[in-house]
Simulated scan of single mutants.
Amino acid sequence: MAQRVTFSTATGRELSEARFTAYHDLYAPVADVSRLGDDFSVAVEAHRLGEILAFDRKLKSVSHARSPKRVARNGFDHFTVQLALRGSFWVTTVHGEREVEPGALALIDMTQWMRTDAPDAEIITLSVPREHFDATGEARRLHGAVLPPGRAVLLKDFILSCLRNEALLGPADSPRIERVAIDLLGLALSDRSSIEQAQPETSADIVCRSRAKAFIDAHLGVTPDEVARAVGRSRSSLYRAFEPVGGIAEFIQTRRLARLRRVLGRVDDTRKISEMIYDCGFSNNSHGTRLFKAAFGITPGDYRSARLDGLAVNLDRGDASTIFADWWASLR
Rank of each mutant, 00 (worst) to 15 (best):
A31R: 05
A31G: 06
A31E: 02
A31C: 10
D32Q: 07
D32E: 11
D32G: 04
V33Q: 00
S34G: 10
S34W: 04
R35T: 11
L36R: 04
L36P: 01
G37T: 04
G37D: 10
D38H: 05
D38G: 09
D38A: 05
D38M: 02
D38S: 09
D38R: 03
D39H: 08
F40W: 00
F40D: 01
F40P: 03
S41F: 12
S41L: 08
S41E: 14
V42F: 00
V42Q: 00
V42M: 02
A43L: 02
E45Q: 13
E45L: 03
A46R: 01
A46M: 04
H47Y: 14
H47E: 06
R48M: 05
R48T: 07
L49G: 02
L49P: 00
G50P: 01
G50D: 10
G50H: 11
G50Q: 13
I52N: 01
I52C: 01
I52D: 01
L53W: 02
L53P: 01
L53D: 00
L53N: 00
A54P: 08
F55C: 03
F55D: 05
F55G: 01
D56A: 07
D56Q: 05
R57D: 07
R57Q: 09
K58I: 06
K58V: 05
K58C: 06
K58P: 00
L59T: 08
L59W: 13
K60E: 09
K60V: 07
S61F: 07
S61P: 03
S61A: 13
S61I: 03
S63L: 11
A65M: 03
S67A: 10
S67M: 06
S67W: 12
S67L: 05
S67E: 07
S67Q: 09
S67N: 08
S67C: 09
P68T: 11
P68E: 11
K69P: 02
K69E: 14
K69L: 12
K69G: 10
R70H: 13
V71H: 07
V71S: 09
A72C: 11
A72Q: 13
N74E: 11
N74D: 12
N74V: 10
F76K: 03
D77K: 15
D77M: 14
H78D: 13
H78W: 15
H78S: 11
F79P: 04
F79E: 12
F79D: 10
F79H: 15
Q82S: 14
Q82N: 15
L83V: 13
L83Y: 15
A84R: 04
L85K: 04
L85H: 06
R86A: 06
R86W: 14
